[in-house]
Amino acid sequence: MSSIKIKKGDLVRVIAGKDKGKDGKVIAVNHKNNTVLVEGVNMITKHTKPSAANQQGGIIHQEGPLHVSNVMYLYKGQPARIQYQIKDGKKVRAAKVKDAQAVIID
């Protein structure tokens, strides 16, 4: 089982599915199901009953989960792979853009 290299707050591009090519910010990461929620991508319609939080009820549009394999990290607008490196005894994330050196992002 591989670890999820995408974190909350990362800018990602959808690389597969109905929203292929869209960019967005990661809202949440679910490590148990290997899914991510991306702002403005994979919008679903949900019918809700009136509650204390939502007095009116009705139809709500919200983001649906995407499998983590269907998104790719964006580094300066370009899709990049994420790798881990050891710098000064600490494990840090690095982005590797096609045909270039890896650049530390965290």
Rank of each mutant, 00 (worst) to 15 (best):
S2K: 08
S2Y: 10
S2F: 10
S3V: 12
I4C: 06
K5L: 15
I6E: 09
K8V: 11
D10I: 07
L11W: 03
V14W: 01
V14Q: 04
I15V: 15
I15D: 07
A16V: 04
G17W: 04
G17M: 07
K18W: 07
D19M: 06
K20L: 12
K20D: 03
K22Q: 14
D23P: 00
K25S: 08
V26A: 10
V26M: 03
V26K: 05
V26F: 01
I27M: 12
A28V: 05
A28R: 15
V29R: 08
V29C: 10
V29Q: 09
V29L: 06
N30C: 07
H31W: 07
K32R: 15
K32I: 12
N33D: 12
T35H: 04
T35F: 04
V36I: 12
L37P: 00
V38N: 05
V38T: 04
V38H: 02
E39Q: 13
G40N: 03
V41K: 01
V41E: 00
T45E: 09
T45P: 01
K46F: 03
K46H: 05
K46Y: 04
H47Q: 10
H47A: 02
K49L: 14
K49G: 01
K49F: 12
P50C: 01
S51T: 12
S51C: 06
A53E: 13
A53I: 12
A53K: 15
N54K: 05
Q55M: 10
Q56G: 06
I60K: 08
I60L: 11
H61E: 08
Q62E: 15
E63I: 01
E63C: 08
G64H: 01
P65W: 08
L66P: 00
L66F: 04
L66V: 09
H67W: 02
H67P: 09
H67N: 13
V68L: 08
M72W: 00
Y73C: 02
L74N: 02
Y75C: 03
K76G: 02
G77I: 08
P79E: 03
A80H: 06
R81K: 14
R81G: 13
Q83W: 09
Y84D: 11
Q85W: 12
K87A: 10
D88N: 14
G89T: 07
G89L: 04
R93S: 11
A94G: 08
A94N: 07
A95R: 00
K98C: 01
A100V: 01
V103G: 01
D106N: 10
